[in-house]
Design a protein around this nucleic acid. Sequence first.
DNA 1: ATGAGGAGTCGAACCGGTTCGACGGCTCGA
DNA 2: TCGAGCCGTCGAACCGGTTCGACTCCTCAT
Lengths: 348, 348
Amino acid sequence: MNIGEIARRAGVSRSTVSYALSGKRPVSDETREKIQRVIDDLGYRPNASARALANGRTSTIGLVFPPAGDHYTGMQLDFIGSVVEAAATYDYDVLLSPSGVDSDRSFQRLLGERRVDGAILMEIRLQDDRVDHLLAEDFPAVCIGRTARPEGDWWVGLDHTALAAACVHHLADLGHRRIAFVNRPERLLRAGYESAHRGLDGFTKAAAERGLTVRTYTCGDDAPSGQACLERILHDDPATTALVTLNEAALGGLYRGLAHAGRHVPRDFSVTGVVASRWAETVTPQLTAADVPAAQMGRLAVDLLVERLDHPDGPPRHHLLTPPISLRASTGPAGTVAPPSPASEPTA
Amino acid sequence: MNIGEIARRAGVSRSTVSYALSGKRPVSDETREKIQRVIDDLGYRPNASARALANGRTSTIGLVFPPAGDHYTGMQLDFIGSVVEAAATYDYDVLLSPSGVDSDRSFQRLLGERRVDGAILMEIRLQDDRVDHLLAEDFPAVCIGRTARPEGDWWVGLDHTALAAACVHHLADLGHRRIAFVNRPERLLRAGYESAHRGLDGFTKAAAERGLTVRTYTCGDDAPSGQACLERILHDDPATTALVTLNEAALGGLYRGLAHAGRHVPRDFSVTGVVASRWAETVTPQLTAADVPAAQMGRLAVDLLVERLDHPDGPPRHHLLTPPISLRASTGPAGTVAPPSPASEPTA
DNA sequence: ATGAGGAGTCGAACCGGTTCGACGGCTCGA
DNA sequence: TCGAGCCGTCGAACCGGTTCGACTCCTCAT
C-alpha cells in the first residue's frame, strides 16, 4: 500500500498523487477526487521514513530530559506534557531522549542520525557542553533554562535569581531574621545546574541586603531527604523561623520534619519557595510560593523551536519569566515569642 | 556526509561500507579499518530515515499516553521514565503520542505512517477501541493495563481487584466498620477505565464479604477535589472511620480535608489505597498502601514488546502484578471512642 | 494567426541507506 | 591439475516518497 499502488489504481502517475496530496502543483478536481477515493478505500497513509528521507524533514522534535535514575519532579512531568501537546498542534511528534549516563550516545542518535528536526533541552547547566555543541553546529534547539552566557541562544527560562530573592523579601517583610535555603541535591549543584546556582545567588544576595542570618543546604529529590534536611536545619540553628526551597520533591519531607519537630506552619515556622502550583496545593497548609509555570514554558519552548525551524536565519529569541509569588497559607509573621526549646519532641 | 562519501574516501563500494558496519558479510580487516578511520575522521552516522526506509524498522516504539488536559499523576511520570530508560537499553527510541482529543489522528500518525515498530498503551479501558484496533491489525503492542477480555493480548497489569480488596481487609482487620472509597474522576469511570472499575469491584465485594458499611465516591485528579471529596464523605456519614483511595493526585487534598475536620490520622481516621510508593511517602503520616510498581511495570512492558518484535509469532504473554500492602503510618485500629462531633472545626 | 504562458500531467532522478546476485582470486582435496 | 567452495568485493535494484524539467493542451492578448 504505497504511493505507486495508489497511482496505479487511480490511473495516474506517482508524482500526480504526490502533488494531489501536497498541493504543491495544481491538480484537476476530477483527478484529485479520483485519487482521494482510492486513498479512502485503501486507508493509505504515506510512509513517514520515505517522506523524511526525500524531503529532509522528520516532523519530529527531540525532548532531551534528565535520566530516570534521578527522581523526577512534578515540574518535569508538566513540561513533558505541555511540550507534547504543543508540538501536536504544529504537527510535530516528540521523541524522548534520556540524557542519561551515556548522554552522548543518545544525543548522537538524535542529531547525528537525523531523527529529529530540532530539540528541546531540559535541566540546563551554567556551563553546558550539550548546549555548546548544538550552538557550534547551529542545530535548531531551544533550552528550557539558560546557560551562563545565554546571549546568542534560544531559550525560555525562569528568573530564579529574582524568584529566590522575592521569597527572601517576602519572609523578611514578615519579620523573619534567621532563614534557611533548601536547594536541589549537591550533585546537581556541583554539576552546575542553573536553577540551583541562580536560586542560591538570589537567595544569598537578597538575604545579605536585608541583613538576615542564613544557612544554605542541599537536599535529595525525595521526601526522606527533605525530612532529614529539616532536622539538620533545626539542629544547626534552632532559632530558624523560615525556609525557602527550590526542591519540589523534598517539600513533603520538609513539612513532615516540621511536624515532627512540633513546629506549626505558619504559626511557628514559615515555608516558601519556587514550586509548580499543582504541587504547592497538595501540601497542608498550601504553600505560598513563586509558581513555576511549567505548562506555559513547555508551550513557549515549542513555539520558539517551530519559529526557528521555519525561519532558520531569524535572530535568537527567548523568554525570561518571573511569575509572582502566590500567597497561600504557609507563611506568616515571625513569632514574637521564643521558638520551642531546641530538639523538643512532639507529644510522645 | 553519507555512505557514498565514506565509500569514495575509503576507496570501496557503498555496499562494502554497509557490510563493514552491519557485519552481515565478511569484510577484510584491512578494509574494515580503512573504513573505520574515514568514519571516525568525518564523524559519520548513518541516516535513520534512510535506514528505516530500507529495512522497514524504525527502532522506535510509540508510547500512547493520556492527554495533557488531564492532570498527570505521579504514576504516569514513573511509567514514562522507566519505559524510556528500558527502551534505551534495547536501542529503541520512544515517540510520545498524546491520545488526546483527536486520539485517532495521532494514532494513525504512529501506525499508519509507520513511525514506530511497536507501541505501548497506557490508561486502558475495559472496552478499548484502540486495543481492538491494534489486535485486529496484529500490530505489535503491549498494554499497561488490561481490557475486559485480555486473553489474546499482550499486557502488564495490576490486579486492582485484589489490591482494593486487600485494602478493605486490612481496614476490616483493624476494626473499621464504616469506610469510604475514593475513585478516579467520574469521567474516567464512565469512560470505562479499568483501574477505576476493577478497583471499585474489588472494594465493593470485599466490603460486602466483611459486612462493612460503605460509600463510594469519584474525585477529580487534584488536591482541591480531594479536599471537597473528603468533606462530602464526612457530611454523608460522619461515623466513617477510614477510606481507600485509588486517586493518587487527590491524596494531599484528602489529608487536608481530614486535618480541617479535626480528624487525626491514624488515631481518628485511617487512610489507605493504591499509590506509587514515592507519593505515599510524601504525605504525613506516610501512607500505608499497595505500592504501584510503576517503574517495574514500564520495564516489563518494554521487555514484552521487544520480545514480541523479535518473535512475531510467539504466543501472547503478560504479567499480572499484585504488590503487597506496605505498612506505613496512616492506618490504625478503629477508635473505640466515638468520633468527634460532626463538622467540628479545629482549634479556631 | 500566433506566440506567451498557465494548467495539468508524466517520467526520471534523487534522498541514503540495505541486500541480493555475480564474480575474481584463493585454498584445498581429489 | 582441475574443480569445488569460500572470502571479499562490487554493481544494481530496491525501499517509498518528493521534486524538477519537459511536454501537451488550452486560453487569451496581440
